[in-house]
Design a protein around this nucleic acid. Sequence first.
DNA 1: ACCGTTAACTTGACGGCGTCAACCTGAGAC
DNA 2: GTCTCAGGTTGACGCCGTCAAGTTAACGGT
Lengths: 233, 233
Amino acid sequence: MTTRRVRARRGEGALLREEILRAAEDLLAESGSEDALTLRAVALRAGVSTPSVYLHFADKEELVEAVCLRVWDELGRLFTDNLGGDPFLALGKCARAYARFALDHPVQYRVLMMRPSAAPGVPPAAAQAFGHMVNAVSACVETRVLEGDPEALALGLWSAVHGCVSLLIAQPSFPWPRDREALIDHIVRQAGFGAAVYSRLPRRLPPSTELAAHLDAFGARLAARGEGDQPSP
Amino acid sequence: MTTRRVRARRGEGALLREEILRAAEDLLAESGSEDALTLRAVALRAGVSTPSVYLHFADKEELVEAVCLRVWDELGRLFTDNLGGDPFLALGKCARAYARFALDHPVQYRVLMMRPSAAPGVPPAAAQAFGHMVNAVSACVETRVLEGDPEALALGLWSAVHGCVSLLIAQPSFPWPRDREALIDHIVRQAGFGAAVYSRLPRRLPPSTELAAHLDAFGARLAARGEGDQPSP
DNA sequence: ACCGTTAACTTGACGGCGTCAACCTGAGAC
DNA sequence: GTCTCAGGTTGACGCCGTCAAGTTAACGGT
């Protein structure tokens, strides 16, 4: 840990980059606070002097962004791992996996999503992860359970899940229900059905009480359809 | 600005607290970056020496939290200002006002919602603002357009709107649609109808394609009802 | 076996940050 | 006029990101 690192051989200077990145990731995970992510702490953990970090990262921001890239990669993997089967169900599984990841890695998620991002443009790993989201949505558009532009729909669903987990992480003292898993389920389904229903609605609607009656009728018709085949997404 | 402040009269030391708070708020608004919110900068702007801040705030965190209280107050006012009329419509107006405020004051919103909040418990101003959200939802539950626990429903709707605006603020380089106003409308309606529909659905559902047909029928029935009375929330 | 080159890294310093102990100062009661 | 103490200031500490300059050791050439 604190032992001095042996100098890399000629041509292998890039090895240090990897070790610094690992040190930064570990520091973030173990400390549980982004404030602990200090160039001095990272360098110490990598067994190297502080300015050595500048051999591979232009500044601290660039190091943090490199850490974020890894997190985007993990997020992207979540999506590819949860595809298959009914697209609407798969979308729900992806969303739940995303939420679980965020809640299991709150510091990383915070650094990824709530940091003032200086860099312009979407990093490739982020674009790829978002691409997976869009694909999962596109599959739902193909079975016609969702309608509209997959990219816009994906942004909407992402917003819902991100909103929930980011509030859970950043405002933990609000009166959240005790069962987080159930809350996530609720949010995911609410967003999913919201997307499915919204695109089919006329632009003008009856007032609340009459609308409630229509909604009741819809629910009853679906319930009367029989036992049903699969759980909600 | 930089001129030295005249010392307060005896018994009026608390005046400085207000001036420091104002200086902090102005600094945040004008600089457009939370990094500019420095004890030294705040003190300089208040025309006072740096450690004088400690006469009224235990540490920087306490100053920032005091700034946040003001923002919570403004958010709370948004809700009371947008009530009245059809509750479902009013809820939509509140959500839109919330989103507009966040997008118009991104730095303040970021400090309020994306900062690691050290203090335990919900500050009174925040609880009050949230109480207004819950009230707006409760009115919808009374007209039966929404069903379920108002507090849980409010958390869900808040999540959706917060998710959207916080992503817009923190990830501005994603492929957001050009028209933010329309996006917000979309998200708000999607979340609102999601909440309205979700509670009425049976626990088991038909597969995607069949579900799509049911949704189409529902949309058609609502559209066929005539011209409609009011726009979607 | 030695040397020169140069990639890989270190040293030491700078200014700015939050924070604190110690000191000053002037408004107002007597 | 003087004493008191609320309402500040001074100066320093340790940590931060960053940088210019210096050092060290791996390797190809002879």
